[in-house]
Design a binder for these strands. Structure first.
Lengths: 343, 343
DNA sequence: TCTAGCACTCTCGGGCTTTGAGTGCTAACG
DNA sequence: CGTTAGCACTCAAAGCCCGAGAGTGCTAGA
């Protein structure tokens, strides 16, 4: 598929004008003609060519042209230059993500929040599921009579706690001892690898802990099963409802369902993102029906030296890609900076 | 405002029929006449009376009657009998909320989830803000060189952790000692009462901990400030989008904004709920513009012997109150049962 | 006190026409 | 040969009219 310079220019102009106005754009369109400096007839013939290539379409005979998903794809791949964020915007992002004093959980919340605010679309941040995190330490903290709080700390500094009931005859020192042993032996393992057998082996010798171990295992099994998939934070859904393409209730409700209630849909859609760079998925390119009216702009972030999760935007296919790409990239980079540093 | 038996019966029938059909109901309406056993003319005159009292209205001359917010109010206060949940539904709720093995956080998630599923409206669960919880224990867990994780455990078993940097020359034993002292002295206090001065006094004597204390204080200040308001879980928003009254994009987006993005709106609206019983707030009774098209059905739940938070439903004013009230009451009761027991 | 009858009102939907934006084609032009 | 002007054509959207039907209020009578 080769595009001569004229068609390229026309495609870019049509896409950008349509993104701006949300209307089909015709060959006589003011801004278009000024920008291209040729007559409407010339534009028309270029448009006809682009339509034949499947990059533009028109909803009906007497309407202007609208980019197809493939048209957006070509625009994004060939013609798009990220629009740098303003000084103030970059500063706002850095301020939100700046505090090394923040917990990772807070940081990701902040990232989702600031990204939605800056891009004016819905943002999503996926943090690694429990299974993907590394075991850092276990602490068994006495809670009173026969009860303790089991706290797991992961490599990223996340904390998971759950009260458990202790078998009789376990002293505080025993808890400390057990915590120490387990922590020492398992430190650095992926939580997904903490199988029953593995745990068994670690404390196998100390059979007096057997009952306690049983409780721990039950807990881990449950939490790991539940924590298999990444946790998603979605922010700024309100921005989507302002977009004209989501005014139709059926479209809106499909999208909102995918974003809010059926987290698995969005989760799986995000899972398709490659590790590197900013990834854009446009309309029907998405695997899921519900997201056919949407585009995703997604980038991975790193924590503790590894790819930890993704951060991105969800908008209509008629998305301000230039801005979205820049914003996602900037937030992902800052996030990696902070999280990779503190790990 | 006195309602004779006839008007009462007509009001109830109109409200329930309108709730069922979402259409204005006219005096000739089949079900209505069968239920009431009088002619349409009689119904008409009762309707005219109810309209004069401000309990019914009609959108235009030749349309049937629709309850006003005040009409729903009278219905809820005078005429409503909760519709008992089915055996299966109660069982489903109990199963979800049954596990004493669950953490409070998980329990509340489950409650929001099951309530939305059963009532087919959006559900909301407010859990107490950090400030409203009681301090149970502090643990300073060594994380490696000069770093530790400060973990606060609250009375409800919630865990809050944050990494802090240690001043030089603090040994693991020192951390244990400090944890012990603070835990002992502050146990049972409301977190909101942990002022700087109070903390200062607790460890005042041990001035070598000064720097550490500073970090702790900074953390508490921040987290408490942020945790001042209750945390809200909202589930099942998709159900709302199916209701005809939310098909208009402007209404839908106002409501969704209030539910999803502007948590303060919903939070404040919920704050108006009294501690006892099931509270219903209808349409314009809500303080907030955005919720004028909605009704709230809310009940408090108890944890640790005290009112801990609220659980409720958000639906259109044309809500199935009978069912909603029953579902909210049942979930709140079960929740209290479990949380009050484990505390 | 209730009911039947009746004239009246007003929305909703279908079908019609008009409007105007935008196109494709063709012929002329530099 | 690419570009432009002119022109006939198409088709959705908006406006309009009208009939159908639902529902009401009123009044007279049981």
């Amino acid at each position: 598929m080769y595009l001569d310079a004229r068609r390229r220019a026309v495609l870019r102009a049509v896409v950008e004008e349509h993104i701006r106005s949300a209307e089909p754009v015709g060959s006589e369109h003011r801004a278009l003609r000024e920008q291209l400096g040729v007559s409407s007839a010339t534009i028309r013939s270029a448009m006809a060519g682009l339509e034949e290539m499947g990059l533009l379409t028109h909803p009906h005979t007497s309407a202007g042209r609208v980019p197809t998903d493939r048209g957006y794809r070509v625009y994004v791949d060939l013609l798009l230059e990220a629009e740098p964020l303003s000084q103030a915007e970059r500063q706002a992002i850095r301020r939100r993500l700046g505090g090394a004093a923040e917990t990772p959980v807070d940081l990701l919340d902040q990232a989702a929040h600031v990204l939605a605010a800056i891009a004016q679309y819905a943002s999503v941040v996926a943090s690694p599921g429990l299974r993907q995190q590394r075991f850092q330490a276990l602490h068994l903290l006495p809670l009173g009579e026969q009860r303790a709080l089991a706290v797991i700390i992961t490599g990223t500094g996340a904390v998971q706690g759950r009260p458990i009931t202790l078998p009789a005859g376990i002293a505080t020192e025993d808890l400390d001892e057990l915590s120490r042993v387990i922590t020492q032996r398992l430190q650095g393992s992926l939580l997904a690898d903490l199988t029953d057998e593995r745990l068994e082996r670690v404390v196998g010798e100390a059979s007096r802990y057997h009952q306690l171990l049983e409780a721990l295992r039950a807990w881990l099994r449950r939490d790991l099963a539940r924590g298999a998939r990444p946790r998603l934070r979605v922010e700024g859904v309100r921005h989507l409802l302002r977009e004209p393409e989501f005014r139709r209730p059926d479209v809106a409700s499909a999208v909102l369902e995918a974003l809010l209630d059926e987290e698995s849909v969005l989760g799986q859609a995000l899972a398709a993102a490659p590790g590197e760079g900013v990834w854009v998925s446009i309309g029907t390119e998405n695997r899921f029906e519900e997201l056919r009216a949407c585009s995703l702009v997604v980038a991975g972030y790193r924590a503790g030296g590894r790819l930890a999760g993704v951060v991105g935007l969800v908008g209509p296919t008629r998305m301000r890609y230039r801005r979205a790409v820049a914003a996602v990239r900037y937030v992902a980079d800052r996030l990696s900076e902070v999280l990779d540093a503190t790990a």
